[in-house]
Design a protein around this nucleic acid. Structure first.
Lengths: 192, 192
DNA sequence: TTGAATAATGGACTGCATTCTATTAATTGC
DNA sequence: GCAATTAATAGAATGCAGTCCATTATTCAA
């Protein structure tokens, strides 16, 4: 996914990008990542197989673009520091994340799986998806620390990894992510 | 992997089990999970492909048996409650786990990936591998709570998920698991 | 000794992601 | 128009997991 305005040669058909992402998004949400073949995606998009591979280097990359650019807006903006307590902000953030994962959790699990088999894709996923979300929570915790809502000895980076880790761990082991979990994480982080 | 002492029929060749596990263990450690094919495993074991599938239903199941039965001993026994503090016991446990994952971490990552694509295998892995290890840490934390090393308001189950989650999350995103991480987790759990 | 039951074997088969190849199409600079 | 360049296309080829099949082997019970 990059271009450099070449001086000659046939130009890319820009509509193919959108057609492929849209086809991938629709099919993956309808049937699930594992049940969607490359053949089905290119057929739905009306392009040749190689056209897909000219743009993305794997099914996982295309789906990461398709599903999580759409959804990239979820939790893409920093967590708003409204008047509420950091505890409430964290819980609200988790509830929002879990709600989105009701729709796309299966896809995220497939993406995480793909990242374990492809180091390049792991890096891409980490930089584009994982670290920004981790940083949002780290920032929230730093603000909380500055305001005294958590003690000065706490480690916001470690805590952020433990928070994300907790629901990754639950999700990857087949447990549902519900409001009870969001509350339990909040309580454990902001304990008395 | 089960038998019921049938009353007739050709008996299983018991040596094939060991040959397959040994071949899988050796090949996966030497080349890495993704680079080992079923064809290579059965060739090394000197049996037919179907003989493998008579015993395990996928490459992931065989490797889970092969690598983590061998290694099942790591952290398979409850964490010894020696005289040391629970904080020290937790850190020692994590250091031991991380040391083993230097050898088999890549395989564990592949197993977790496989579990995301196969619900039956996910259940098997969870029951046989994940939950027992989670319970060990939960027990440790309960003992610590009974002795007052952590406050009565803490939630040992949630904490255990956060501890395991933290290193799963780090591992699955390509970070090394070192002594510093073990120490940081310990400090965050047993904070002042 | 024979039949029923189950295992082992070699090889064929299916479905899939990804790569490769040859051909045709669109563009720029001349 | 023409050469050079890059894209799109259809389809073949590769490599692999998992399944299916026909044949042969081993055991038990009658």
């Amino acid at each position: 996914m990059q271009q450099e305005d070449r001086t000659s040669g046939r130009p890319r058909d820009v509509s193919a990008d959108a057609a492929l992402k849209s086809a991938a998004l629709g099919l993956v949400r309808a049937r699930g990542y594992g049940k969607v073949s490359i053949a089905a995606i290119v057929a739905a998009a009306g392009v040749a197989r190689q056209t897909l591979y000219n743009r993305w280097s794997s099914k996982a990359e295309l789906v990461l673009d398709a599903v999580f650019e759409e959804v990239g807006r979820y939790a893409a903006a920093p967590i708003g520091d409204d008047g509420t307590s950091a505890a409430e902000q964290l819980e609200a953030f988790l509830v929002q994340v879990f709600a989105h994962l009701e729709e796309d959790g299966e896809t995220l699990r497939a993406i995480i799986a793909a990242a374990q088999e492809d180091a390049d894709f792991q890096r891409l996923f980490r930089e584009r998806f994982v670290l920004p979300r981790e940083a949002m929570v780290t920032d929230l915790l730093r603000r909380a620390q500055a305001r005294g809502e958590i003690g000065p000895a706490r480690d916001p980076e470690m805590l952020s990894a433990m928070i994300h880790g907790a629901f990754w761990y639950r999700m990857l082991n087949g447990f549902a992510l519900d409001k009870g979990l969001a509350r339990a994480i909040r309580d454990e982080v902001f304990r008395p």
